[in-house]
Design a protein around this nucleic acid. Structure first.
Lengths: 206, 206, 206, 206
DNA sequence: CATGAATGAGCATTCATTCAT
DNA sequence: AATGAATGAATGCTCATTCAT
């Protein structure tokens, strides 16, 4: 919401465009070699910008990392919210949300992993923002848990809700960051198992 | 198991000693500033070694990171195994294991976080080893799940077991890597909620 | 006199105006941070010009420095000449000139310092011009010394005159470039002492 | 006295040696092209050091400038003090000191000029030190002025003394920083004229 | 075995200047 | 005449690693 990356360039349209190039290039590079092993020269080159131009749209390499994290998070959040339907009751809504979430993560596996691995390299004020977004995603699930609790389709304690919300998110993101261990599990299996597991965990009345 | 870090020094006792110094220094430094922002000079200095000596016990900075990850993992695994009791049935054993695991993670929060954040910087052959240990820890839980399934105290499908084991591990480690979001949750609350949640998820008969 | 700074712009009035903006901005910036640490972007911005426009009125950053030095020198010379009165004899004229000069330097302390510190960064052909102006100022004093020598109110050798003239100028400028050491001396004290000292040095018959 | 430049190297003898190389190279380079236009690469190369080695003996380019200024000042002060003889009275001592000072400046013309032109680029804590040394040199003259005043060989007011001391120093350094204007004056002429002039200014009784 | 000085490739960033619009 | 985005060479500095002593 609040934090923005400064730029020397006045035309906001151009800034958006160029930053998109920068983000796309950086996502690829950071995935391949990580943030630290990627040089600003590589970013510039793959963005189709000159060394100097890169720094017209960004003030530091860390700005690039933030731009990337922010972009990914926005995409995750947007896609997640898009697929949220107005369902009959809390339990069903939660189940749908979880399924949607898993699909988003599957499609954005590499990006989710990137945030997991590199966001710690952000300077504090950017990190705060990224964590806030992470929390915002968690909040979505928290809401559904409360809904289900309220309409009686989920049987959970108040105290459990925030923790459960994090469990939901983390168990979903696991598909990205424990990929190495889940090679033999198909996505469909994963979805089924995780959803059923979580429904049991919340004692869902279907 | 297999992978070892080469050294120039013959006396294995001395190697063990010196590496312990290196590990202790590095854990502190990596926690404070991360792997990339820590210099080998700092590691040497805090280890009480000279720049050159460091490289007698290690061939690269990445060797140090591996030593650190390995050490932490060993400690986690040892502590976890120590606290595993021979309990009556699978469900109870699982519950105890989970509680123990959470205590280990609580005591080693920073170290667990370190592995989460830095292991990606390991060269492939070291990474493989670290992931293998991670899997070994997961396997412990998998075994208890199977035990419980076998003796009927847990009601779970075969296909769910590997995924559930990862859920258990990840939901525990969450205490370390989502610390920022769990500031208002006490450790006891966390333990209670997670354990109960997982028991429900496994449909444990007590 | 001779050297001029090239421009792309035809209308000389506009050139004068814009360059005045450039000079004013640059004086401030050079005083604050020095020539080398001031960027052309800063100059443009504070001048109210765009990056590109700056280069319509100037061909290089060094042109700006020259413009600044020239402007300051002109002001010094003008103010000095304005306050020169037609006095009875050489000694009195010299004394008046010195007093006037010291007042000019006091009022333009920062500017005088700027020339002292930055003119060395001028390209040779500009530097020559600046030194010529510096000499012109010295020449004013030289003339009064000769006048005094001629009318017998100063008792000095021919050979001493050029050196004495420089002494006068330098002992005056000292107020600017040794400010750090003269913190505890008031301007009036300084004037009195320097003037008396120089009168003695020239063996002035009042 | 107080301020020292940090180094990574432990052996103080080696530090002294290497820094001497650095100073000699830098003096040449700074004289030729000025501090800002000299690169650390050039300094390293001419010092016979590698890029990296330079930074074992120095922490920044500005450290080099300080080393250079300090070295020059030390040499000036040493040479000046060496040539100070214990003469009969204040006036004679002052005269001798002035002559010695002028010879030092003549021999170290370029170095004196360097300090005049570049010391402003020093970071504040170094600049303070350099100005302190400059003051120390001035103090030497101040002492002789006081001596002469005390023994009656100089007829000057108390208030005049600090200013006169600065005049002496500045009128001497003029030989270096107004060289361009004194091309036609021989050193001997300069010495004679300046010394006589200053003796008159102090109303010296021989 | 230990030391610590030396190395030099590598990196993020800056900035005077140009030029298409 | 004005604008401001683009350029890219240049620069100060870092740091993992080596190696002579």
């Amino acid at each position: 919401m609040s934090v923005t990356v400064p730029t020397q360039v006045k035309d906001p349209e151009r800034v958006r465009e160029r930053r998109m190039q920068i983000i796309e290039a950086s996502v690829r590079l950071f995935m391949e070699k990580g943030f630290h092993k990627t040089t600003t020269r590589e970013i510039a080159k793959l963005s189709g910008l000159s060394n100097g131009s890169l720094y017209e749209y960004v003030e530091s390499k860390e700005d690039v990392l933030f731009l990337v994290c922010q972009h990914i998070h926005r995409e995750v959040e947007t896609k997640l919210r898009q697929s949220l339907t107005e369902e009959v009751n809390g339990a069903v809504r939660l189940r749908h949300a979880m399924v949607s979430f898993l699909h988003v993560i599957d499609r954005m596996q590499a990006e989710v992993l990137l945030i997991y691995q590199e966001s710690k390299s952000l300077p504090p004020h950017y990190l705060r923002e990224v964590l806030a977004t992470e929390q915002a995603i968690t909040d979505i699930f928290e809401q559904f848990l409360r809904d289900g609790q309220a309409d009686g389709t989920l049987e959970i304690e108040d105290a459990a809700i925030p923790i459960l919300a994090h469990d939901l998110v983390v168990n979903g993101q696991m598909w990205a960051f424990r990929r190495w261990a889940l090679k033999s599990v198909s996505f469909n299996q994963f979805v089924t198992q995780q959803v059923e597991m979580l429904m049991r965990a919340c004692q869902a009345k279907i």
